[in-house]
Structure formats: structure tokens, C-alpha cells
């Protein structure tokens, strides 16, 4: 049986029905056709499917779409506004923190949520926030630099 759900997707209202066994990840990728969110493992271990649910980063493969009823959902597609990259997205570009790019949307969503809940995070907090997002290309150094550059102490912060 389908369940009616209502939520906002990147600020816009969405209403429709979903089957209970549809994961939030498939809902985002297939129902909403927002394919920026990736599937890397399907078991909550890699973070490639990170989206924000009411501001909290979650692995969309471990959430049912029906659970998003009444929530504010944010995906990578909502981060650039009117064609302009967010500050964090710009930092990823500037710091060459992107290689194959498959983990990138998830990492950005995890880091963006951190910057919103703690505008001046410590290096340790940055690492904690993105450590659930596996990346096989960058070795993380450039990612951490990019996130750090978006904090008030970013310019003076020491290397980890």
C-alpha cells in the first residue's frame, strides 16, 4: 500500500505517495530524479548517499522514504543557489578536493551540516563530521583543507 507523504525538497514542497519499502535514497534518485546523491554500498557504511533531513546529515540508504514525511530534505542539488556555488562548494573547487567525484556530494552535505551547526568547528570536529564518508581518491587532505577554509580560523588554521 502506498503512503501519502509531504515534505520539502530543497525548499520546495513535494507531495505524493510512496511504497513503504522504498528507501529515501531510491526516492531521491528515482522518484525525484535527483541523481547527485550516490549509492556506494547500500548498507550505511560509505556515506555517498548523505542527505540532510531536518538539517541532520543521514545516510539515505538507511532511511525509508516514508520516514521523511513532514521533514525538510536537502540534497546536493539544492546547495548552489541560482547557479552560484555555495561557499563550501567553491572551496572544494579551489582546493582541488575533488577527484572521481562520486563521494563528493555526500562529503559536501556532511560538511555543510557541520558548518551550519557549528560555524567554527575544530579540526577534530571536521574530521568527525566527514569520517563516515569514504573517499578512495583524495586521501582526504584536500577535503579537510576545503572545509577548514570555510571556518573563521580557516586561513590561519594549522595543517592536520
Amino acid at each position: 500500500m502506498e503512503h501519502p507523504i509531504k515534505l520539502t525538497v530543497n525548499g520546495q514542497a513535494w507531495e505524493g505517495s510512496v511504497l513503504p519499502d522504498l528507501t529515501l535514497l531510491r526516492f531521491v534518485r528515482e522518484t525525484l530524479a535527483l541523481t547527485g546523491t550516490k549509492e556506494g554500498c547500500g548498507i550505511g557504511e560509505c556515506g555517498a548517499c548523505t542527505v540532510l533531513l531536518d538539517g541532520r546529515p543521514v545516510n539515505a540508504c538507511m532511511v525509508l522514504a516514508v520516514e521523511a514525511d513532514g521533514c525538510a530534505l536537502r540534497t546536493i542539488e539544492g546547495e548552489a543557489k541560482a547557479g552560484k556555488l555555495s561557499r563550501l562548494q567553491q572551496a572544494f573547487v579551489a582546493h582541488h578536493a575533488v577527484q572521481c567525484g562520486f563521494c563528493t556530494p555526500g562529503v559536501i552535505m556532511s560538511a555543510q551540516a557541520l558548518l551550519e551547526r557549528a560555524p567554527a568547528p575544530s579540526d577534530e570536529a571536521i574530521v568527525e563530521a566527514v569520517a563516515g564518508n569514504l573517499c578512495r581518491c583524495t586521501g582526504y587532505a584536500s577535503i579537510l583543507k576545503a572545509v577548514r577554509s570555510c571556518t573563521p580560523h580557516g586561513r590561519t588554521g594549522g595543517e592536520r
Partner: peptide, 9 residues
């Protein structure tokens, strides 16, 4: 316990 994102669920 698990990753930060998992602990959000």
C-alpha cells in the same frame, strides 16, 4: 559507535 551520520538515525 558507527559514524556521525549513522548516529543521526
Amino acid at each position: 559507535l558507527a559514524s556521525y551520520n549513522i548516529r543521526n538515525r
